[in-house]
Design a binder for these strands. Structure first.
Lengths: 338, 338
DNA sequence: TTGAAAGCGCTACCAA
DNA sequence: TTGGTAGCGCTTTCAA
């Protein structure tokens, strides 16, 4: 199974040149005679030689690799986030590797060790169990940017939308549509979710409606939570006429719970989701949602990160991108084209 | 941003011991006096030293890391597959890192380079654009196992279910339920999908039904394909009474298309999905599906991989695990508990 | 139980 | 345009 473990020495010997020259060829140095270059390349080809990056990276003290740290890689928003990060990275010659922590402290530490142990040059964090203090400690010593799902820190850069305003906008829209009894299915396990709740409360207050705690439920971003918590809401004396869900998957659960109870969407109850992921389209009716500029969030995150990696001095920035509301059948009666 | 770049030398100096001793402490060698050990550990703590793994791995010619190569990390089956791989890896002291190729040849080559460049010790491939020949070339030289979504090769190990039999079982079940006009929404972009189609054909043949090409549609595993291709099926003169979908997401699209056309599921048309992912539950009715033992597939895959990494000689195995059919509302009228 | 030192594969400096 | 070589940080053998 072990490959032949060829080294730059083997190539040099075979090509009758020095290792320095081989190294130059590998790294596309311009100061190699064309004839020499092609000879070396030919030997590399024949031998099937691949340079050992451990040696290279050790010598250069740089890996051109970054790590994406996140509880789950299968989050619906992850695809576009990753594409944004990866495209930006590619542009600068960096590779992105990823690993899910599944919210395990141990796993998280193990991955952060990859940063400390010089296996990657920088870290992008999209949600973690790390405390703001821990994030700050890391941020002070290493290159680190938080993206989308973040915690308040002094020493890390952050790229995200304005979650509070997003919550505010969602609720304001529902209020404008005539709703007075608006529920929310949120989560306590996420900074962003809590901010969206603040937005909810502000919008309610501003409209002169009274805040009713029983209209706010907390779950964990899953379809099942959407299903169950909606059922809970339906048990209330004074039922909501609109429900704001923390993401689209929850919103699909919400819509399905309503339908199972014979409640018409959007006529009797309107539903708003979040993220504009493909799940928002997997329901009948489709889900009105707040869209995050996921690709751009990712792209800008890498740009901030490479800034930090290249700079000596510290330079922490917060970048806020615009969200927007996408209207679909779960809040408005739209003609369905078939 | 740069951390202080402490080395084992710094620790040695500060602790008044040799680097060899520090190394022994780091690696939990038993031949260090307890007093020495604690002194060294204290210095490590004070300084905040983390060993540079590039140096270590270069020296050891081993990284204790493997790479998971797959077109998309957000595939619904990926979560359990990854957990299985990761748990097995953890058990052996290995880390798993992942990267999506998004079916880009270039990205794929870049990631495979990580293997060739000694950045990881082994590779797990869950779907790729690599030809059997390319896979064989890699398999001959490096440690490589295919999992779940695979191609026929001589020189790689494979862990998967028997996809042909799975297709056969799904269709046989529908035939036993009385269906005679059975459609399939498959895909041409996947070996497993093609095998399931073979199973479909065999079951049809065995039951003495005639194979009707117009009942077989090809898409790309997406919700939209489920939606559109089902619409196509409904345009047929002689409509199907059952539809077998290549995965659960497609099946949800299928069910929704049927509902939008006023067709009752399962009374008028029955639907079967594949994979038993969470999407199968996100539909009304829930989707009858073929479950793969995803976690175990992942677990066994790593076990095969570590075998190869530890062995000198070649040792290619095919492991086939059992699938099973899960009955839900899309094929049977089940009392829905509320 | 500890230390000295060679060397993993590579890059990049200096000299030619 | 090329070669010689020091040294990146670490482990591990050998000797003490």
């Amino acid at each position: 199974m072990e490959s032949k473990n060829l080294t730059i020495q083997d190539v040099a010997k075979r090509a009758n040149v020095s290792v320095a020259t081989v190294s130059r060829v590998i790294n596309n140095s311009s100061l190699v005679r064309e004839a020499t270059r092609s000879k070396v390349l030919e030997v590399i080809e024949t031998l099937g030689y691949s340079p050992n990056f451990l040696g290279r990276d050790l010598r250069r003290d740089q890996t051109m690799r970054i790590l994406l740290l996140t509880p789950s890689l299968i989050w619906p928003i992850m695809l576009d986030l990753f594409r944004g990060i990866d495209d930006a990275a590619q542009r600068h010659g960096y590779s992105v590797i990823a690993a899910p922590t599944t919210n395990s402290k141990k796993k998280e530490q193990e991955l952060i060790a990859m940063l400390k142990n010089r296996f990657v040059d920088g870290l992008i964090v999209i949600g973690s169990t790390l405390s703001p203090q821990e994030l700050d400690d890391l941020g002070k010593q290493y290159s680190l940017v938080q993206c989308s799902e973040w915690k308040e820190t002094k020493y890390t850069s952050i790229v995200s939308i304005d979650d509070k305003k997003a919550g505010y906008d969602a609720i304001s829209y529902l209020i404008k549509s005539g709703h007075k009894r608006i529920a929310m299915i949120g989560s306590k396990n996420s900074g962003s979710a809590l901010l969206r709740l603040q937005g909810y409360q502000e919008a309610i207050a501003k409209a002169g409606l009274k805040f009713d705690e029983s209209l706010v439920k907390f779950g964990d971003f899953t379809y099942e939570d959407g299903l169950c918590l909606t059922k809970d809401l339906l048990k209330l004396e004074d039922k909501p006429t609109a429900i704001f869900c923390i993401n689209d998957v929850v919103a699909v659960g919400c819509v399905n719970a309503l339908k199972k109870n014979g409640i018409r969407v959007p006529d009797e109850v309107a539903v708003v989701g979040f993220d504009d992921t493909k799940e928002a389209l997997m329901s009948i009716p489709e889900i009105t949602t707040i869209a995050q500029p996921k690709y751009e969030l990712g792209y800008r995150t890498f740009e901030l990160l490479i800034n930090q990696m290249n700079q000596e001095g510290s330079n922490y920035q917060n970048i806020t991108l615009e969200h927007n509301l996408i209207l679909r059948g779960s809040t408005v009666n739209i003609d369905i084209k078939e």
